[in-house]
Design a protein around this nucleic acid. Sequence first.
DNA 1: TAATTAATCTCGCGT
DNA 2: ACGCGAGGTTAATTA
Lengths: 247, 247
Amino acid sequence: MSELPDSTRVETLKRPALAAARETIADGIGRDALVTVFGRCTVDYEGRASSRLEAGDRHVMLKPDGAALVHTDEGQQPVNWQPPGCEHDVYQEDDRLVLESVRSTPDERLRVSFGTVLQVSAFSGTDENDLALVGTEEDLREHILAEPDLLEPGFTPLATERETPAGAVDIYGKDSAERTVVVELKRRRVGPDAVSQLRRYVDALERDLHADATVRGILVAPSVTDRADRLLVEHGLEFVSLEPPAE
Amino acid sequence: MSELPDSTRVETLKRPALAAARETIADGIGRDALVTVFGRCTVDYEGRASSRLEAGDRHVMLKPDGAALVHTDEGQQPVNWQPPGCEHDVYQEDDRLVLESVRSTPDERLRVSFGTVLQVSAFSGTDENDLALVGTEEDLREHILAEPDLLEPGFTPLATERETPAGAVDIYGKDSAERTVVVELKRRRVGPDAVSQLRRYVDALERDLHADATVRGILVAPSVTDRADRLLVEHGLEFVSLEPPAE
DNA sequence: TAATTAATCTCGCGT
DNA sequence: ACGCGAGGTTAATTA
């Protein structure tokens, strides 16, 4: 039977006494393990907003980078959380076990108070690999830059992320008639927001390049909603249907 | 010693054989438990985009509502996931244990393949309570509706979520001179996006109420960025500094 | 540190 | 099911 490397360890307690739970959690935090606690708890948050969650059974994860996640049995999103960069703390208070994750800038505090702890685990592992993701807006940009005729015949890209007083334009270029073209890319079907964004850039560039300049604005996305289409027409903007490449 | 209610159970296997792991996971999914698996795995995703993650130690959570989360030891966000509504599946494939979560509309598939399973848990619990959150945009709206003078003396709210061709306006009302006022609320410091949004609504209402109508647009937020401020001035829009109430 | 924008955004509400 | 906008959005990049 193969031995695990020393760096890969799992420590688990079932229905532990509070003192034992506290010690295992503190030890896990101390040696940069990923710590999970399942049990009946209340959750309080105070920071950019504030919240309270009355007692229920939840799964809490404390990560070594300072992130904290409180999950119920529903939803992709945690019901409460704390971003990376927090300081985790665990202590006993009367007959309860309390987890606290605190950060500053902004001042935020998450407090999970367990009346019953059903399981505590501390996982140590290694993970060298990063996610390889395909189908992003950047992939769509590369696609168009490699083959500008996909946008329209004769299009010449001149810059990406070109700065304007209203923000950076995704692709800046010229059409076959030497007119300035501003391209805004979206990886998926878009609504009014994307049209407004493109309009901001076109407005800003027209101001920048003097009032007599003609600036074309082209929205590139798989599709647009009806309302977005109406806004495009209203503002004299154009649409080209393209998707991020599949591979 | 107090007995747990039958509905609150935890089942855990340490370094299980694949067959035992598969059975416990399948049983957990079947009885609507929250299932977690920690071990060395690869992760593949295909759907709105596609991704691959090479081998590493990760924590996988399968929720009874169909959500799936793959967490590394870093970050608040899962490295891969699947939203609620998926069908979870577990099976053995050669010497590997495979978790699959699949959904349609859109067609998406998440596949986690374990070469080593260090721990499997199945948690059953109860959670009756919802989160009580304070400090949202809606709280800010209630605050202003209860005391309209906070916006400016003589302001009279006439409607919330008033529909325009460009979307619904947060607060629609009249000032002391009977001019139409459009109010856009943000719970935190805003950038150019919020200004564009307000501008969309003002444009749409001016069209709606005939060309001769004067429509004031007021952005309400704790503060604005420099660029947003410049955009506000450019478009003749106004700003009032207000925060959501603290309690 | 702040600002800006993408995201497999998610989530809730409405049509 | 789709559209639309909020979110304690988070995360990445850049100034």
